[in-house]
């Protein structure tokens, strides 16, 4: 009755050997370089930073002779901010909206409240805007925001309560209505309210909405970040979709910040700062444009990349008095969004 059944011994031994072999394999790779940098970002910047990181590592090594390993983390903007607050050791955050970095500053104290003044252009080295993605041939004839509130138009946009990207969508629609002749906050609220009545699926995140529209084929128009729309069209078939640029839209500024409290402790403040600044360099701007973000300095990017961006009139978040106020007015519990979409 000992462990003497042959088959059992055989099985136990072989599983042990397999585990040991794989274990040896994995332990061999747990070799970290001396200096590492962690950039905590949101979902759609993956391609951008995948291209940017090795470029910066090369630049840094040429400049200082120091070898650097750059790690990336991607997720929803709000949940990534939450992770940093809960202790994810980000030297740099590159998120979807300033409000999320404000939250890190406020709740963790790891960067100062005036972080957005530390880098040029509101700390946003690249921008984007909100456009419409429609099915090929534009069967519903959608040209501008007005067409989205027509009866029978199925709109796809994520929930602004849970998705940072969706807040830009919502505010873009609001700003459009407000800037129409005779526009008032009341008329804007009525417009946005009608728009959200046309929403057929309110996903919790931007990528979920993309999948709903693109993969599942639900809805007639998808309100999307321009870079997301470009990516979706190129990745999933230019033969199936078209991008429509509205007459006016919002200037979406995804900001970048060095988390000084963490970088100082990890001894990476110099390289983290250089990393953020390098995004404004010729290399940084070129890579941003290549990945469908509008660079702040178009003259530094490749002309053929810039030529892809249609002319669009934009207004900024200042129209709403900054992110703190926009958040409090529109997206807080009991705010305007709750009133128009509430029970």
């Amino acid at each position: 009755m000992l462990f003497n059944t042959r088959s059992f011994k055989h099985l136990a031994l072989s599983s042990f050997l397999t585990l040991a072999a794989v274990g040896a394999l994995s332990s061999a790779t747990v070799q970290a370089q001396d200096k590492t940098l962690l950039n905590v970002s949101y979902d759609p910047t993956r391609e951008l930073y995948q291209e940017f990181n090795p470029e910066f590592a090369r630049f840094w090594q040429e400049k200082t002779g120091e070898e650097i390993e750059i790690n990336q983390s991607h997720g929803g903007s709000g949940s990534q901010a939450r992770s940093v607050i809960d202790g994810l050791e980000a030297d740099i955050v590159t998120l979807g909206l300033a409000y999320d970095i404000d939250a890190i500053a406020e709740l963790s104290g790891k960067l100062s409240a005036d972080w957005q003044t530390k880098l040029p252009d509101n700390s946003s080295p690249y921008t984007s805007t909100i456009v419409f993605l429609v099915r090929k041939g534009n069967p519903k004839g959608i040209q501008d925001w007005d067409d989205l509130v027509q009866p029978g138009v199925g709109v796809i946009t994520p929930n602004p309560k849970t998705s940072g990207g969706a807040r830009w969508n919502y505010l873009a629609a609001w700003g459009y209505a407000l800037q129409q002749p005779g526009g008032t906050p009341e008329s804007a609220q009525a417009f946005v309210s009608t728009l959200y009545k046309n929403v057929v699926v309110l996903d919790s995140g931007a990528r979920g909405s993309t999948t709903t529209f693109v993969q599942r084929g639900v809805g007639d128009v998808f309100i999307s970040w321009e870079n997301e729309a470009f990516l979706a069209v190129n990745e999933l078939g230019p033969e199936n979709f078209e991008i429509i640029v509205p007459s006016v839209s919002i200037l979406a500024e995804p900001p970048v910040a060095v988390v000084t409290g963490i970088a100082e402790r990890r001894g990476t403040l110099d390289v983290a700062t250089a990393y953020a600044e390098y995004l404004y360099s010729e290399t940084g701007q070129r890579i941003a444009a290549k990945n469908y973000y509008r660079p702040r300095h178009p003259e530094l990017a490749a002309p053929e990349d810039i030529a892809r961006f249609p002319q669009v009139n934009t207004f900024s978040i200042d129209l709403f008095g900054g992110w703190q106020k926009a958040q409090a007015d529109h997206f807080s519990d009991g705010g305007i969004f709750d009133q128009i979409y509430g029970l």
Partner: peptide
Amino acid sequence: LAAIKLTVLIAI
């Protein structure tokens, strides 16, 4: 590969 190794390590 890193993900596979980590997963195996966690199991080990």
